[in-house]
Write a protein that binds this DNA or RNA. Structure first.
Lengths: 214, 214, 214, 214
DNA sequence: AATGAATGAGCATTCATTCAT
DNA sequence: TATGAATGAATGCTCATTCAT
């Protein structure tokens, strides 16, 4: 005995092919966006699942239809961010051949991306680091890949003869990333409001030419 | 008023001045050390007060004789670290006049300090950032001071004519700190075991001279 | 926007209006009844929230869906009792005009009400007094109102010419209430089992006529 | 090897006969007084042993040299009060033969005693009732004895022909006590400041003559 | 799929009591 | 006797997760 009405039956039919998948993605997306807002506001550990659900305008239980746990929500935020940064980066870097120009473009993209969404930046910089376990086990993949892109670009530059060959590419990649990262962290914590993206230029200036007077 | 003998009175005084105060400091110290170990292992939020007490070999309640709350333990870890880094730094830098040499020494000290205590480094890098609130409200003082020392040194170098005057000192300080910070973070997360301190050289090499081939 | 059928929507509505509200009231009620039992058995401070939950046959956390805290449970017990005694009293006294008959009816109702639920009486007599704060801040309203009804009735009797006009109404109301109260307290503490309500007659006899032989 | 000084030794000797016992009684007394103050302020369950010790100007542990537990302190407060009221009462009533005069004197003494020490009254009225267990198990003896003195006096009055013989002495004793008790309770809770003792007259007036107009 | 009431494991903190000094 | 640092059992409350509807 199925109590469903005809109307509901039709509605389910119409949903089942295209729109279902899209709707699912939409709601997942909405939850992730809500999570970023909430995590940025209170931190991961101080955020309740019900806060996320409330922010997303859904019931608490619904979160569990799209994510296995609160932790998985956090991982998904990170995964999506890394995925986006890498894929967007690849697209943007497609035509750029010179390693120095590629590196400069990476710096710009990095700061543009995080500078355009303060909440996302907060979660990325602060919350995602709130757990050694997380850093070790989960972020490894995405983050390592990101750092590797920088490293490969640096090596390419060394081959191209633009970058000094006496420097360790891995360490240089870290320095480069660390410098950018610090720009973001300070931007988040700053009480003043300023654009993040333009700082890419100064970073590149120093990274390329150093601070010593010649 | 008090039936105690003079000798006994003096003994008690001397105890309460020397050994008691020392004992109190010792236990506080022991708790902090235990907390660093435990926080490094599980993260702040996943650490129980009873874990800290257990690690320190004391009863749960005893923690509260020395700290007001679990949170205060975390803050104390941070405060002590910043204090140490700043005071040790000041002592080490005393005789060094050249800004470039001072900066190099700061880099070395930073990596030596954190490189000598992996747990402390983990807490410093990972746990202390696990809370936006924490970063904003508490670390502000110590961390800001630390960054300012670097900035002042840089400005000094600009005056001395060693550093380029067209660069913004604040941004350069952040780049310098960010690069060092990333060395530490990667060192912590790395599965390989290597010395952290020597990386100061490469960082200085890049920070000073840049990566571009001349 | 919602794929639910109209029928289903209506069904849910009617459920949330009737049965849901009733169910909520039922569970609140069940918790209050459980609390009275538990408080009567062990006293407020020696009762655990889990005792109340256990007695009510629900999980610990469920108590907090209906009450903000353990303390609020106690207050609710008291509030409900005062409310009931006053509203039931007003209903019962409606047609009674003579002040002496009203007073007698109040005495009967008071002892009937508490005499019909030993646990409730225990909580009312013993637990609710276990805190000066409670007596001062919370019971003020209800208890004061109750005592005032007695006082007004006494004044009415003085106007009607049944009661001596040389007596202070407030003090007489307290004597009346105090006498009844002591009946209840002794009944609770007594190891013998006897009916409480009939004692109203003796109290009225003494209160009306005094103990002196004429 | 005993480190005690000669002075201390002599001091101990001088204390050991008379003054020791007195000193012990004094400190016990001081603790009880402190306890009354503290219990009156916060209630028994909300009072810490360290509060009592602090109020008495001694160390926490010292309380346990004079009392077995916090609960025993409460019982001692009660025991001493009952003892005092009964022994003082007996002394005061010694020469009084007429039962009505005895009863009037009891009422006066009761209100004088509690009216002279608000904190004691608070503890007696409010805190000592905060536990069914307490009322049942401990106060039984003292309180029962007190009520019995009233009852016996009433019976005496019936024999003397002053009191009506158709009334149950036990119930009358309770009414009498209940009326007095309520005077005290209201006095404690009242925000206005007034003398408690004079209310004995009104209580006797009503108890003896009743409220009905003749 | 969506709901949200119910669950119950988990934990920071308190405080009566002890005991070495 | 007196101290007060140390203990550790005890508990109110939270919140991630489940599941009947």
């Amino acid at each position: 005995m199925n109590g469903d009405s005809f109307i509901k039956y039709m509605a389910r039919q119409s949903r089942s092919n295209n729109s279902t998948r899209a709707a699912v993605a939409d709601k997942r997306e909405a939850i992730l966006r809500a999570a970023i807002t909430v995590f940025a506001r209170n931190g991961y550990f101080n955020s309740k699942v019900s806060d996320i659900a409330g922010e997303a305008g859904i019931a608490d239980g619904t979160v569990y239809l799209y994510f296995k746990s609160k932790e998985e929500v956090l991982h998904s935020v990170f995964d999506r961010l890394m995925e986006e940064m890498i894929s967007e980066g690849e697209k943007e870097l497609e035509g750029i051949i010179d390693a120095d120009k590629r590196l400069r473009r990476i710096a710009q993209l990095h700061l543009e991306k995080l500078g355009s969404d303060r909440n996302l930046a907060i979660v990325a910089q602060v919350e995602l680091r709130g757990s050694t376990k997380f850093m070790e086990e989960f972020s490894a993949a995405g983050f390592g890949q990101y750092l590797d892109i920088i490293r490969q670009t640096f090596i390419e530059g060394q081959k191209q003869g633009v970058f000094r060959q006496d420097l360790n590419a891995t360490v240089c990649a870290k320095i480069f990333y660390g410098a950018l990262d610090e720009m973001v962290t300070n931007w988040i914590l700053s009480k003043k409001s300023y654009a993040l993206a333009p700082m890419a230029d100064t970073v590149m200036e120093v990274f390329f030419g150093g601070v010593l007077k010649k």
